[in-house]
Design a protein around this nucleic acid. Sequence first.
DNA 1: TCATAATTGCAATAATGTTGCATTTAACAT
DNA 2: ATGTTAAATGCAACATTATTGCAATTATGA
Lengths: 144, 144
Amino acid sequence: MSRVVRDSIQILQAQGYKVTKPRRQVLEVLEEVQRPLSPYDIQRLLRQEGKYLNHVTIYRILDLFCCLNLAHKVLSSGGFVKCSLEGKGGCHRLMVCRCCGALQEFASEGLCQEENELAQNSGFHTEYHLSESSGVCSDCYKKQ
Amino acid sequence: MSRVVRDSIQILQAQGYKVTKPRRQVLEVLEEVQRPLSPYDIQRLLRQEGKYLNHVTIYRILDLFCCLNLAHKVLSSGGFVKCSLEGKGGCHRLMVCRCCGALQEFASEGLCQEENELAQNSGFHTEYHLSESSGVCSDCYKKQ
DNA sequence: TCATAATTGCAATAATGTTGCATTTAACAT
DNA sequence: ATGTTAAATGCAACATTATTGCAATTATGA
Ligand SMILES: [Mn+2]
Ligand SMILES: [Mn+2]
Ligand SMILES: [Zn+2]
Ligand SMILES: [Zn+2]
């Protein structure tokens, strides 16, 4: 079991949520594939491993995970809402490879500050932000 | 008719697309409300004005507008894909007010460059990026 | 092992997206 | 103006995604 999954389970417990089989399974599959997955993607992947989860359950689990910052939503190619495991705390700078779908996450205090300042210049009070880049990852770039 | 709408119509013509009533109506409503709208949002708004457009038509029109950069998709509160008229060319830095849904767009060469550099450090080749901030606009901030 | 509240699954329904084809319409030539 | 034609729209049918209420199940702590 990976570190991220173990941490997530601990957070669930600490907050008084049950550590159920469905919740573990969703965590595992998100960690396994390392790219954004929609609720139905998750259902399909689990089914391939012979595990069945009702889609409603998956929706509710993902809602909870987002609430607890164990996962978050990203805008992916095609515009669908996907979820991926949270990497570093609070960061939402993502790079999605348009070839293989791989997702990388990185943090930048500098960028955050600059963005906030620019927003404030027009009177906007930022509470949260998300930045997504679409492009080609290093692996896919080599293969071309 | 606003400047943005006029420009958009000209682009349609220049590229050999027909300037139809449905296309004009979608342009107008997007310009009117100044916030992101889903295809069905647009249908509902137009219906309120006594105008009827089939949802399939709206999907096709929005696809075209995105292609021509007359509109683009944003990740809005709740995760739905919305569209708004394109402001300045190529820019995709958005601020969405979580109170009133108002959307502002701004450009920043500096931010773009910095983001690209950071991405390249991990071997990622950026082709396109989107940055969205959620928060409170100046109007809503005053009212609180 | 038992009690209990939290969680899940199920059924029904709603909302959103997609495709093929008949009908209409904007643009252009007469 | 009128007719011609390709492009665009509307319609029907269908597929996928999302939400809600309630009964059955399960993780937790006593
Ligand atoms: Mn993140
Ligand atoms: Mn833009
Ligand atoms: Zn890749
Ligand atoms: Zn506002």
